[in-house]
Design a protein around this nucleic acid. Structure first.
Lengths: 167, 167
DNA sequence: GAATATCGTCAAGTATCTTGACTATATGGA
DNA sequence: TCCATATAGTCAAGATACTTGACGATATTC
């Protein structure tokens, strides 16, 4: 009963960065758990981060490197793992002898489908928790933040990427 | 330039998890860059995550383990590094021969101060970007999300079980 | 053609986190 | 008091997710 420390409330951080970080971690943990429960044992957050940059119709490995903000070697290693798990496959690019095309296997597409379902379930849970109005405001603010982001100087910037809608 | 692939817009994800993740990463990258620019070369995101759980008046190492959602060995290793960098120090807990108290050194407190300043600067930038109103809505939604999360271990709670685990 | 840039790969190293095993101390009875 | 058990922290080993550096193969440019 000598337990009496913590003289005061410890005041955890409450700034936007901390909140975003906590919320992001919570979402990812929930999503990853559901994915694994759905049978996708190969799933991890790092892999999810990369897969998020691979459109359903595939992409070039080099294009992936530009968009995911990690080194090309990191991309390659993640792809190596995903290929070994039969989630994606790599084909030579017929238009460039150096390049490779990355695309989903059937297993990968199945996982995407499950992922979409899980996303909606989580989203529904969020709406239940904070209300439709607040959820909409959250998405609105996050999109605005992303749109207003200091576009990377030069670097073949995207002319106008209106991908900020639909899904 | 035979750069002409990407038959169509690739439609990056636009769900709440993705947005949160991107926003969180962007914030952390901005913060870490500013911290390092301010002379705190030891700064890293993982360390920041742990420091966020250490109040200014210090805490017990074991209390840290409960709050940061990582293993006690991970906490220890991070603390080892922070101690080696002279950011925190560990003292024996006079009230428990097994325990140790973790508290900031002067260098650590200096870093906290710089961190507070940088946080405010980033926040100001966000407000400039999306407007005060939207920023407030963002914080409100994030706080509500966190408050509605019912996963604190033990604790005395139990009054309302509104966490309806949803479907 | 030859210089140069780009694409992917191989190798090695670092940071962060995990599980397992262990020591020292505290606590709560019998 | 002594013992069973729980708790606080440490040590060791390994997995994952990255990094930088070096390199060969193909494209592009002049």
């Amino acid at each position: 009963m000598v337990k009496e420390l913590d003289e005061k409330a410890e005041a955890l951080p409450d700034h936007v960065g901390w909140r975003l970080w906590q919320a992001s971690r919570a979402w990812q943990a929930e999503f990853a758990a559901a994915m694994r429960a759905a049978g996708h044992a190969w799933f991890s957050e790092a892999r999810a981060g990369l897969l998020g940059h691979i459109p359903r119709n595939g992409t070039r490995q080099s294009a992936l490197i530009e968009r995911a903000a990690i080194s090309k070697q990191a991309v390659q290693q993640l792809l190596d793992g995903l290929e070994a798990e039969d989630v994606i496959e790599r084909l030579p690019d017929p238009r460039d002898g150096r390049g490779k095309l990355v695309r989903y296997t059937r297993k990968g597409l199945d996982a995407l489908r499950d992922g979409d379902r899980i996303k909606l379930e989580i989203e529904r849970g969020y709406i239940d928790r904070i209300g439709e109005w607040r959820f909409a405001a959250l998405m609105d603010a996050l999109r605005a933040l992303d749109a207003g982001r200091g576009d990377e100087p030069e670097t073949t910037t995207r002319p106008r990427d209106e991908t900020a809608e639909s899904k």
